[in-house]
Design a protein around this nucleic acid. Structure first.
Lengths: 252, 252
DNA sequence: CAGTGGTCTAGACCACCAA
DNA sequence: TGGTGGTCTAGACCACTGT
């Protein structure tokens, strides 16, 4: 009765057991691709973990981990005593943890960045607290206008510790902030975000091409690296008819 | 140099090896409590996994899983060759995957619900598509005003399949929608959310106590159960000076 | 070099569900 | 009752980090 999973021949052939790519990742990647492409249809039941592992010549924990990755992404559902199924709901819908810019960058849209301000500043009370530096300290302030296909969609304000003040407007224009940081060996590990709404103020309405006091979507973010150091504090606002935040929640 | 972790005596004594609560969960719960309460300070380094497991008389995978839970929550950071550390950044800050209502319910605030509308309706095009039913089908439409300490913070509109139309306004008022559903044996497993902003319309401004066309924060949600069936579609709007969405992102 | 987390194996027992 | 996922064990080897 239940759809039995029959995957394309050789979907899981050629697993690389010597390279640096973990086996569970190879399996989950191929499985994810097969699900997203429709090769394995919604509602289809996967083989049980033991048999699956036996056929792939993998131990059960390894197979479990591969499956768990997709459960966490909301692509699979596991039920004890039943089995593992491809989720029926969001059929062709792209499911991501949170889509920040990727929506814009992935499609054939052409993203653009204009650096409005780039200067050294003294941190005011609020910025100092969020950045974890003494008030009045030198910091780097950046203000950018982000657009897609020539239409402005966001105003991004970032505050960074002084040690990053040699980042140039050119780098920001070409690579974006996070890629520039990564190029310096700095990787963001944890970020706290707060999403809200308010009226546009100052020149925001003009820059976004909306009413001068029209509604904007806002996102505030503090980003930390591995060691827990604050790398960046940002206050951003988005044109609400051009941008929204999507999330997929998976209950444990 | 590095802070060595010294936990309160007996933090991990009395692990229940016979009860239904998984060992990894018992460990991660107590560890989380110790971190949030400051018993283990930010920046502190945990014992390595082998030694930790040996002292708790647990195998390494079990200890790893307990630690991984907290890494996913953003409370711990693991670095190969270095060790595991308590995150330095969000010191006392409550960190959740996404806080929906819990912010309001947890504190000593008094949440309130007023059912504005509760009726059977024919699904229009958009609702029918999101709910996965034919256009014109009977559905249950609910409109509620949510408040905290007597101040309105949100207008919630929900659309449910006809099979739930025996849910009463009284149940919604006392238990909320999700708890009512849970009482019927229905649990939400996956939800797709979209967060945005727009102007208030119709009577929303009045109901929220803001300008009639002032900015509101919006959240649209489709919720699925285990089997992938659509349980609920919602369109909500929030008073932006009273409500925002917080998330913690952890890079893999 | 020694120490750490990252990955993987080959088993085992249990709780839950459907038939 | 048989099959499923949920949990747990006791090892092993590797990759990366700092000294």
């Amino acid at each position: 009765m239940a759809d039995e999973a029959v995957w394309p021949d050789g979907l899981f052939a050629d697993l690389d057991r010597t390279g640096p790519v973990p086996l569970y990742f190879q399996v989950s990647s191929r499985l994810e691709e097969a699900i997203r492409s429709g090769g394995i249809p919604p509602g289809a039941r996967l083989e049980n973990e033991i048999a699956f592992g036996h056929r792939l010549k993998l131990s059960r924990p390894t197979v479990r981990r591969a499956i768990q990755e997709l459960v966490d992404k909301g692509l699979l559902v596991r039920r004890r005593g039943i089995g593992t199924q491809v989720v029926q709901g969001p059929v062709t819908r792209p499911v991501e943890l949170t889509s920040l810019y990727e929506d814009l960058q992935n499609a054939q849209h052409e993203p653009g960045t204009r650096v409005l301000t780039h200067e050294k500043r003294a941190a005011d009370e609020q910025v100092a607290q969020n950045l974890g530096v003494p008030p009045g300290s030198d910091i780097l302030y950046i203000r950018r206008q982000r657009s897609t296909d020539g239409v402005p969609v966001a105003i991004l304000e970032n505050f960074l510790p002084d040690e990053f003040s040699d980042i140039t407007p050119e780098q920001l224009q070409e690579q974006g902030l996070y890629q520039t940081l990564r190029g310096r060996g700095v990787t963001i590990r944890i970020a706290n975000q707060r999403i809200g709404a308010r009226r546009a103020r100052d020149d925001e309405g003009e820059l976004l091409g909306i009413d001068h006091d029209g509604p904007v979507l806002t996102m505030e973010r503090i980003a930390f690296d591995d060691s827990g150091r604050v790398i960046e504090y940002g206050q951003h606002c988005y044109r609400p008819d051009m941008y929204s935040f999507e999330t997929t929640l998976v209950a444990k």
